[in-house]
Design a protein around this nucleic acid. Structure first.
Length: 429
RNA sequence: GGAGGGAUGGCCGAGUGGACGAUGGCGGUGGUCUUGAAAACCACUGAGGCGGUAACGUCUCCGGGGGUUCGAAUCCCUCUCCCUCCGCCA
């Protein structure tokens, strides 16, 4: 959520910033919000005057001896109470409307974000490593996987339908190894604290991390228990410190969590249906930080480096893409994607998305900190980034490390997590 | 699933209709004393909205929501969560 005071004080500037986003309708909301805010304050002022009056007289009534006088005051206050009730009702409806509007306004882009209406304005900021030369035609993972007996698409579909697959044997082991290794890596080398959060959460958490109301269509929901299945560990991690006032000395807080992610993928129906690139369920290791406003952009750069270290350690070429205003998404003030090269399918795969939401989520989830003992609480800044999602780097591993005979060499860093195994070979070889 | 008991400020805990935004203790901050520290003593110490340059004023908040009342931490309804016991279960 944006700061209502900012909208009030610099509405034209806010609109200009919103104009650069790919969110038609956001600008119009600002005028609606200004109007609701003015109404809210007018009603509130009147209401408070009347409440002050009632409080004052009610205290007197308690002390009154004269019965006639007392009764007169009581009936006066009964009338006043009716007016207060009316105003309270008005206030409630205005506030609800205002809140609803505020929840639909996306975050403002940071001044450093490249301006452009869509992803074609994204900027490749840096590229690491060189695509490997193959003296044979590299095959895509959807051929390698089944040939190795480690990905079973048919049975995945049999069990759960399109966008599901089953990992078997070394595929399942590799998947598990990647999760463990990434978690360990971030804990040991980058100072994160490991967390295993709930995978189902209450609705308020979805608002807190700004998935709702905009992306409601994209999550699975258990109506009977009123649980929402997390589309990313970002949701529980954001809300970990909901309604808390943190001690400034504790910051930054750095968490890393593995979780499965559940997504209905309504927005991308028909896209990327081949292979394991986009499924309704996938595993991800997520990095998350709570920082002071002064240090959040430095933290963002560190997180890009944290995710990049994983790519480097796996020995796969990667690049950093800086998102343009039109491709920022709803909550980010600034966002980088990290992409790995996959020679088999011949594309750069988005394996990580790293955002600084500034106080956008903190305001929604009410996460504050006290800079100094006794000082007024301020909202923290929150940052999230994949470190990494599992299936796509797995694609990159299979396609980059494939051998002419169809076997796949396991990256060195993962071998200790696979009992020292060095190669995944076809079943019959 | 059944039966009972709870939820009050950073923490503990008092408060059953009116001077209570809340006694007291702990913790924290500042001070007195001291060469310094400890102890002792004194003072301060929740969050937020609105108005105001500010001092300050005012309102709201005692788990959430609703109700009764001139007036609710206190009474009623409801929801959520926690604890104890029983049953069931990976």
């Amino acid at each position: 959520m944006l700061d209502i005071a900012l909208i009030r004080e610099k509405p034209e500037w806010v609109k200009e910033r919103l104009e650069t986003l790919n969110d038609p309708g956001a600008v119009e909301r600002i005028d609606t919000i200004l109007e609701l805010d003015a109404r809210r304050r007018a009603v509130l002022k009147e209401l408070e005057t009347l409440r002050a009056e009632r409080n004052r007289v009610s205290k007197q009534i308690g002390r009154m001896k004269d019965q006639a006088e007392r009764q007169a005051r009581i009936s006066e206050m009964r009338e006043l109470g009716k007016r207060i009730d009316g105003l309270e009702e008005q206030l409630k409806s205005v506030e609800a409307e205002l809140q609803e509007q505020m929840l639909w306004v996306p975050n403002l882009p940071h001044e450093s974000v490249p301006i452009g209406p869509d992803e074609s304005y994204n900027v490749v900021r840096e590229t690491h490593g060189k695509p490997k030369e193959f003296d044979f035609e590299p095959r895509p993972h959807w051929e390698l996987g089944p040939a190795l007996g480690i990905i079973d698409f048919e049975r995945g579909v049999k069990l759960s339908g399109t966008r599901f697959y089953v990992l078997m044997e070394d595929g399942a082991r590799l998947h598990r190894a990647m999760i463990s290794w990434m978690l360990d890596y971030h804990v040991r080398h980058h100072g994160y604290t490991e967390v295993l959060p709930p995978f189902m959460v209450r609705q308020a958490m979805m608002f807190g991390s700004a998935q709702f109301p905009k992306f409601r269509e994209n999550v699975y929901y258990d109506a009977e228990e009123d649980f929402y299945f997390i589309p990313t560990a970002e949701v529980p991690l954001t809300n970990l410190h909901r309604d808390e006032i943190l001690d400034g000395g504790q910051l930054p807080l750095k968490y890393v969590a593995y979780s499965p992610c559940f997504r209905r993928e309504k927005m991308s129906a028909g896209r990327d249906v081949r292979g394991i690139k986009r499924g309704h369920q996938f595993a991800k290791v997520e990095m998350y930080r709570f920082t002071t406003p002064e240090t959040s952009y430095q933290a963002l750069e560190e997180m890009v480096r944290d995710a990049g270290d994983i790519c480097d350690a796996l020995g796969i070429p990667w690049r950093v893409v800086e998102m343009a205003t039109g491709d920022l998404g709803f909550a980010a003030a600034k966002k980088y994607d990290i992409e790995m090269w996959a020679p088999g399918c011949g594309e750069w795969l988005e394996v990580s998305s790293i955002s600084n939401t500034e106080a956008f989520q903190a305001r929604r989830a009410n996460i504050r900190y006290r800079p100094e003992p006794g000082a007024k609480p301020r909202f923290v800044h929150t940052l999230n980034g994949s470190g990494l999602a599992i299936p796509r780097p797995m694609i990159a591993i299979l396609e980059n490390y494939q051998q002419p005979d169809g076997s796949v060499v396991i990256p060195e860093v993962l071998r200790p997590y696979m009992g020292g195994q060095e190669v995944i070979r076809p079943k019959d070889a």
